[in-house]
């Protein structure tokens, strides 16, 4: 049992490295990208795509699949790196990032296999996920819906409309993850428009909340395995993360929310990320 868990953790940590390598690869080919918010989500994307979500990469529209909506759409580099690793499309597609005929742009595009919803404007995904979860309830289907939100994104009021609504419906079929990396485009979130007390806000809205270190793979899978946290309430996971996680010069700074990825920068990033052990 323990060795199984150790093997799982190793695999998920390895995939997280590959997702980070993949997102840097995509952004390098595109010339620029949202490194910060893609990297902060990478460990959770690994746990989602290689452990938690029930998916069939060869059958992306499988009706009973779990739904994952990346509401913080600017982290698409991380998402498509995970989708490529999971087999939704060849990893070489990452080299077409931003290309004229590419499946892959700065934000998730529904034409890309594995993407559930095109996003990009902030504050859309939670309501959409709510509708999907409601659809599951109405059809008595087992699939679960997970929406990943950014912290800066929570400044959009529409999220709080959806938060109220999901709790009102006691929608335990719905989970939201906040990638709480504390940094947005132009400054630290707390400086620009702070969210604290974030967990208490969601609790007050009627959600069951857990807080984890969003880079600690054990904590991530324990939280995902515990979903829904309680019956008759939507679940919220506040994942404390580091913007740009994995590459020192990109960590915890708004300059790497979105930045150019030159050959030199790319080489430096890959060297620091290393290969799976």
């Amino acid at each position: 049992m323990s060795s199984n868990r150790d093997a799982l953790l190793k695999r998920l940590r390895d995939e997280a490295v590959m997702i980070r390598r993949g997102l840097w690869r995509a952004f390098h080919n595109g010339g620029s990208g949202h490194v910060g918010g893609s990297s902060s989500a990478a460990d959770m994307l690994s746990a989602l795509y290689f452990h938690h979500l029930r998916l069939r990469p060869a059958e992306p529209d499988w009706p009973d699949r779990d739904r994952f909506v990346l509401s913080k759409g600017h982290a698409n580099g991380g998402l498509v790196a995970a989708l490529a690793r999971a087999g939704f499309f060849p990893e070489d597609e990452l080299d077409t990032f931003y290309g004229f005929e590419s499946l892959l742009g700065m934000h998730p595009d529904i034409k890309c296999p594995g993407v559930e919803m095109s996003t990009g404007g902030l504050g859309h995904g939670l309501s959409i996920g709510l509708g999907m979860a409601l659809g599951a309830r109405l059809q008595a289907k087992e699939f679960r819906t997970i929406v990943m939100l950014g912290d800066g994104e929570l400044q959009e009021g529409s999220n709080w409309e959806a938060a109220m609504h999901a709790a009102h419906l006691r929608l335990a079929e719905l989970t939201a993850i906040v990638d709480y990396n504390k940094v947005q485009q132009s400054d630290h979130v707390g400086t620009l428009l702070g969210l604290e007390p974030l967990a208490d806000k969601w609790r007050a809205f009627g959600w069951e909340v857990r807080e984890i270190d969003g880079h600690d793979m054990e904590q991530i899978i324990d939280a995902l395995d515990a979903l829904p946290f309680v019956a008759e309430k939507p679940s919220l996971l506040v994942a404390h993360t580091v913007k740009g996680k994995g590459v020192g010069f990109a960590e915890d700074t708004y300059t790497w929310h979105m930045n150019m990825v030159t050959d030199e920068v790319y080489a430096e990033a890959l060297a620091e990320l290393g290969e799976p052990s």
Partner: peptide, 21 residues
């Protein structure tokens, strides 16, 4: 019959439509 939160309602309707409604 929901509250006065139109941004959310349109998103929810979109999610329901994605599920075949």
């Amino acid at each position: 019959m929901e509250g006065v939160a139109e941004q959310n309602l349109i998103g929810v309707a979109a999610g329901l439509a994605m599920e075949g409604y």
